[in-house]
């Protein structure tokens, strides 16, 4: 039974490394800010969480650290990627290869409404 923990930890390390590599690869391959944030901001966090889990399995005394670290990553990671995406959209960075953009539609509708209210009768 003792042998199972190192093996499980190894599996977690490999999975974590795999997802970290995917995050880096996505950052290079994907076309624009928004899609790159998907790879770097989230899949990367995902990889780090697996690595923290593996560390907790090998040395049980760091379990608390691993749990807190994962929780902080999961709470703060989305906030960062949302802030970056929102800033990019406000600056007018185009959404590459967009098949659908509901936000642009809503924005145009709002602008049109404001223009029609401003126009003298």
């Amino acid at each position: 039974m003792e042998i199972i923990w190192p093996i499980l930890a190894l599996v977690l390390v490999l999975t974590g490394t795999f997802f970290s590599i995917i995050g880096a690869l996505g950052l290079v391959r994907l076309p624009d800010v928004y899609t790159r944030l998907h790879a770097a901001g989230k899949v990367g966090v995902f990889g780090a969480a697996f690595l923290a889990g593996a560390a907790a399995l090998i040395t049980p005394s760091v379990l608390g650290k691993a749990v807190i670290l994962t929780a902080l990553l999961v709470i703060a990671g989305p906030v960062v990627s949302h802030a970056l995406a929102s800033a990019a959209y406000r600056l007018g960075t185009p959404v590459q290869r967009a098949t659908r953009d509901d936000l642009a539609v809503a924005r145009e509708r709002r602008l049109a409404m404001r223009d029609s209210m401003d126009s003298p009768v």
């Binding site: 690869l25 996505g26 391959r29 994907l30 928004y34 899949v43 590459q96 290869r97 659908r100 642009a104």
Partner: peptide, 17 residues
């Protein structure tokens, strides 16, 4: 997402809903 990134054709259909 890992599948999409690893796919040589990069089958993304980005957009905002």
């Amino acid at each position: 997402v890992a599948r999409i990134v690893l796919d040589p054709k990069l089958p993304i259909r980005p957009g905002i809903i």
